[in-house]
């Protein structure tokens, strides 16, 4: 009896989900083998990670804090993908948003009830401005946004380093490489977890609803799936592209705003912690679905927190990064393999 492998246009959801689960398990097994080879006991480590993360409210609070920027950056990348734009610059927009929000906090006097919303708006505008040039270049000159958004990351990173150690350096002299503590902060609602988390969830739901339940969202979905079809139906592709990319930048900017105003309280170099790049992975795991960003960001936050636990056990940060890379790698393979089935020839 001969069998052959057949490719199907799209995987059934149950198979796709199973492939996802298998990818994560395989990544963990692979990591376990590597850890065992390094002389660690992977089972004991695994237990340690689970206990630390889920066994106490401190662990869960840490995860809750990590998930906030991941939701925003993951959503930012996913939004871009809706119209076929690859925003690799969430990292830079994160910095730009943090920078703009810090500027408002440090230099605009006023009560918190006014300044915090103002910081929110400034963060969004900062992120949007940071993606403006790549957006216009893509829309009017067809310049690949993958390169332009990526390169602007380095500019934003260095810009924030410079202001935090130069013009905006804490005048009290107690901090060497950060701004002063911001006079306003996003209030906490559960341990150390601040209101950025519910706001992030609301933003996800709003964006999800925007794509699912508005005429504009429908046009963007069509344009993202096939620009030719959008042209055929008379939809303004360029206008939608510009709006979606700016929205993507603004959301990434919000990640920076909440990180500086809710978690770190000071603007400093390296504040992004690679959240912008991790957002790409979150979006891939979410398959560019806004709602899917929530579980994907949660998974990523758990992995990051596990990494911190592992580091306390003497495992290097590179190993942790390797595990996240493995998950992405196996997921990509799993997504592809889910589209094949074996049939009797």
């Amino acid at each position: 009896m001969a069998y052959r492998i057949q490719r199907i246009p799209s995987a059934p959801p149950s198979v796709a989900l199973a492939a996802r689960g298998l990818a994560i398990v395989l990544a963990l097994v692979t990591a376990g083998i590597v850890l065992a080879a390094l002389g660690f006991n992977p089972l004991a480590l695994g237990w340690q990670v689970l206990r630390t993360t889920f066994g106490s409210s401190y662990g869960l609070e840490d995860v809750g804090l990590l998930v906030i920027p991941l939701i925003f950056t993951g959503l930012a990348v996913a939004v871009g993908q809706k119209i076929g734009a690859q925003n690799i610059g969430a990292e830079g927009q994160f910095y730009a948003g943090a920078f703009a929000a810090t500027g408002v906090a440090l230099f605009v006097p006023g009560p918190m009830a006014v300044i915090l919303p103002l910081m929110f708006v400034a963060g969004a505008i900062g992120g949007a401005i940071w993606i403006l040039i790549p957006t216009l270049a893509r829309a009017y000159a067809d310049v690949n946004e993958l390169i332009t958004t990526l390169l602007l990351n380095f500019v934003a990173t260095l810009l924030v380093y410079w202001v935090a150690t130069g013009p905006w350096l804490d005048p009290s002299g107690r901090a060497l490489a950060t701004t002063a503590r911001l006079p306003h902060e996003v209030p906490e609602f559960w341990g150390i977890v601040h209101w950025g988390l519910p706001v992030a969830v609301v933003v996800v739901l709003l964006v999800g609803a925007l794509f699912a339940f508005t005429r504009w969202g429908y046009e963007v979905r069509i344009a993202g799936s096939n620009p030719q079809a959008a042209r055929y139906a008379g939809m303004p592709f360029r206008r939608h592209l510009i709006m979606v990319m700016l929205l993507s930048g603004a959301i990434a900017g919000l990640a920076g705003m909440f990180e500086v105003a809710g978690t770190v309280h000071r603007l400093q170099g390296g504040i992004s912690n690679n959240f912008g790049y991790l957002g790409i992975m979150v979006a891939v795991l979410a398959r560019a679905s806004p709602i899917g960003v929530l579980p994907a960001a949660a998974l990523m936050a758990i992995i990051l927190n596990s990494g911190i636990v592992l580091q306390t056990q003497g495992i290097t940060v590179s190993t942790v990064l390797a595990i996240t890379g493995l998950i992405l790698f196996y997921t990509a393979i799993g997504d592809e393999l889910a589209r094949y089935r074996i049939v009797r020839a």
Binding site: S10, Y218, R221, I222, S225, N226, Q228, A229, Y232
Partner: peptide, 12 residues
Amino acid sequence: HSGLAPSLSITD
């Protein structure tokens, strides 16, 4: 390639 968005649903 010009009349349909292949990856979207039949409804869309």
